[in-house]
Computed example of a mutant assay.
Amino acid sequence: MFMRIDHIGIACHDLEEKIELFSRTFELTVVAREVNEEQGVKEAMLHIADGEGGGSYIQLLEPLSEESPVGKFLARRGEGVHHVAFGVPDVADAMHKIKEKGVRLLDERPRHGSMGSEIAFLHPKDVGGMLTELVQAVTPVQNVKKVHM
Rank of each mutant, 00 (worst) to 15 (best):
E17F: 03
K18C: 01
K18R: 15
K18Y: 08
K18L: 15
I19A: 01
I19V: 14
E20M: 06
L21A: 09
F22V: 10
F22E: 10
F22R: 01
S23R: 14
S23F: 14
R24A: 15
F26D: 08
F26T: 12
F26P: 05
E27P: 00
L28M: 12
T29M: 13
T29N: 09
V30W: 08
V31R: 03
V31G: 00
A32V: 01
A32F: 10
A32Q: 08
A32T: 11
E34D: 14
E34T: 05
E34K: 11
E34S: 11
V35G: 05
N36K: 02
E37K: 09
E38G: 03
E38K: 14
E38I: 09
Q39D: 07
Q39C: 06
G40L: 00
G40H: 04
V41L: 04
V41E: 03
V41A: 03
K42E: 11
K42S: 13
K42Q: 13
E43I: 01
E43Y: 11
A44Q: 00
A44I: 00
M45Q: 06
L46N: 08
H47A: 04
A49H: 13
A49N: 06
D50P: 04
G51K: 07
E52I: 09
E52M: 09
G54P: 04
G54K: 04
G55S: 12
G55K: 06
S56L: 01
S56I: 05
S56N: 11
Y57E: 04
Y57W: 11
Y57M: 08
Q59N: 13
Q59F: 01
Q59V: 12
Q59Y: 03
L60R: 06
L60Q: 07
L60S: 04
L61T: 02
E62P: 02
E62Q: 03
E62C: 04
S65W: 08
S65M: 02
E66R: 14
E66N: 10
E66T: 12
E66A: 15
E67Q: 13
E67T: 15
E67R: 13
S68Y: 07
P69Y: 06
P69D: 04
V70R: 05
V70G: 00
V70T: 02
G71L: 10
G71F: 02
K72T: 13
K72E: 14
F73E: 05
F73G: 02
L74Q: 05
A75N: 11
R76E: 15
R76S: 12
R76V: 07
R76W: 09
R77T: 12
R77N: 14
R77E: 10
R77Y: 13
R77G: 10
R77K: 14
E79M: 09
E79Q: 02
G80R: 05
G80E: 06
G80K: 06
V81R: 07
V81P: 01
V81N: 01
H82T: 02
H82L: 08
H82C: 01
H83K: 07
H83F: 09
H83N: 13
V84Q: 00
V84C: 11
V84I: 15
A85W: 08
A85V: 01
A85E: 06
F86C: 10
F86Q: 07
